[in-house]
Nucleic acid binder design. Structure first.
Lengths: 117, 117
DNA sequence: CATATACTTAAGCATATGCTTAACCAAACC
DNA sequence: GGTTTGGTTAAGCATATGCTTAAGTATATG
């Protein structure tokens, strides 16, 4: 498994901003133009375009130009990468807690039997 | 559902750095001291402590001092928050794709029946 | 053809981030 | 009590981020 650190950096960084998460949220309900993405945000259009560039750079969003409007859509794969990383860490400490639980159980068991070992 | 935007900002920002993810990864296998966390990283101890502060600020990690060594542990809840946010977005566009699939199915159905509507 | 619309590009700026080194503090060791 | 060990605090600095305004381009629309 290749150590793909760069995309994770970009995906998590992209998600670390509430405006960008708002855009992802909007796009998860369906495609939208830059103007539509900008409407709910209290900032200039160029600022929104910069956020969009971060999202595209992370692979979370892709866009194409149709006439004079740019249509943006979500790109599920990148979100999956982030979700998977988190899930893997969770699995690790869950297993660790399992082993800890086993140890405690053994311990309890041992003390019932009169603390051998 | 309260709009808890601040912790998500911090959690995603904390995860956006490979050194910090490395620390989380290490801690997901069990508690560690600051020195242990620093060992694999090519940077000064104060830099590591600053990363640790970011992780603690996000709620991903908590630590306590035992004698002269600081013991750090992972805090599962924060990771869960991030995972949940992503999962919710995924659910949204999956449902959207379902509806889209329904539409296409209806469409195909309609064209079989001779393109009504 | 003229004008409005929907971006796009460029430049500039304030603040935040990610380090560094130097100096300091307190628990453990000899 | 002196020294090593493990961490902490402070200051400084280079670069990155997140905006802004101003000006430009290309596609509709009347």
């Amino acid at each position: 498994m290749l150590n793909q650190t760069v995309p994770l950096d970009r995906v998590f960084h992209a998600l670390a901003d509430p405006s960008r998460r708002g855009m992802v949220e909007r796009l998860s309900r369906g495609p939208a133009s830059v103007g539509e993405l900008a409407r709910p945000l209290a900032m200039s259009l160029p600022a929104v375009v910069q956020h969009l560039a971060v999202l595209e750079g992370s692979g979370l969003v892709r866009s194409e130009k149709v006439g004079r409007v740019r249509v943006c859509r979500i790109e599920p794969a990148a979100l999956g990468t982030a979700e998977r990383w988190i899930a893997e860490r969770r699995t690790l400490w869950e297993h660790r807690l399992d082993r800890l639980g086993d140890l405690l159980a053994e311990d309890a068991d041992a003390s019932h039997r009169g603390r051998e070992s």
